[in-house]
Design a protein around this nucleic acid. Structure first.
Length: 266
DNA sequence: AGTCACCTGATT
DNA sequence: AATCAGGTGACT
């Protein structure tokens, strides 16, 4: 379930475990996940370098290496990163680190990607995605301005990575519920007053979800409890709205599910 | 702007 | 057997 909050939790979790370690060997189990890059080239570049930091940008996990290189890992739908021994059928890629640690990338569907770039190239790629919604870069003014220029339905706008970094299907739906906006509403037809509410709702939704995701990672048994707390509409088609009791609807937008309350979100 | 392919496992 | 899945990018 990797959107911004889950990716943030993963980065925070693994950073202290892998930082300052040296990459002894790179193992590309499935060349598909590094395509179009070549396993041999990735290994040649990465081996012997030290891991300096693990960061998040949108839904990307960035692993800075010594000498001006970095890995970019995108989990897509089903990817997972863990620091552990690599003994799973779904393991696609792993790094052997100094101190006999391993950083393992598992991905059942193999849609996730691992690439290596020079730091300069990586920055160029990351410059193409929108502001971090939990940082000051995500200003109300620029949000309103961008909304004014777009006829996109609100939910698709929120999920557009060039607009806002890291929002996905779940939290876009949750933020719209919180702001009481219909997911089909074109962005340029939402008045500034309500855009202000939406801007705040995006930040609150993600902040809450980051907390839940971090708890979920540290206490696996509490996952369901944490999720219930962060999901007012997502996946609840046919169930009563927590605010008004009306049945939650499921519609399709851009080929995927959108959940909303037809009474609260008009 | 909208649709589909990319993959595979879980669910119906 | 068919359908569904939280993301993204390539295509029309």
């Amino acid at each position: 379930m990797p959107e911004l909050p889950e990716v943030e939790a993963i980065c925070r979790r693994i950073a202290p475990l892998v930082a300052r370690r040296t990459i002894r060997a790179v193992h590309v189990v499935r060349a598909l996940v590094v395509r179009p890059q070549r396993p041999a080239r990735i290994a040649r570049i990465a081996e012997g370098r030290k891991i300096l930091d693990v960061r998040r940008r949108g839904k990307n996990i960035l692993i800075d290496l010594s000498g001006g290189f970095a890995f970019r890992i995108h989990l897509r739908m089903t990817g997972e990163l863990r620091v552990d021994r690599p003994v799973r059928p779904s393991t696609r890629f792993w790094l052997e680190l100094s101190g006999s640690h391993t950083l393992v990338f598992d991905d059942a569907r193999a849609l996730g990607r691992v690439h290596i770039y020079s730091s300069a190239d990586l920055e160029k790629i990351m410059a193409g995605i929108g502001p971090e919604p939990l940082s000051k870069d995500f200003s109300l003014d620029s949000f309103i301005e961008a909304a004014h220029d777009s006829r996109q339905p609100a939910k698709l706008f929120l999920m557009d990575q060039r607009r806002i970094a890291g929002m996905g299907n779940i939290y876009a739906a949750e933020a719209l519920f919180r702001a009481a906006i219909n997911p089909r509403q074109p962005m340029n037809r939402i008045d500034p007053q309500r855009l202000m509410v939406l801007h705040a709702a995006i930040r609150e939704t993600l902040r809450t979800a980051v907390k839940s995701a971090r708890i979920a990672y540290n206490h696996p048994g509490k996952v369901t409890e944490a999720e219930r707390f962060t999901r007012a509409v997502y996946g609840r088609a046919g169930e009563p709205c927590l605010r008004c009791g009306t049945e939650i609807c499921r519609i399709e937008q851009g080929g995927r599910s959108t959940y909303y309350c037809p009474n609260c979100q008009r």
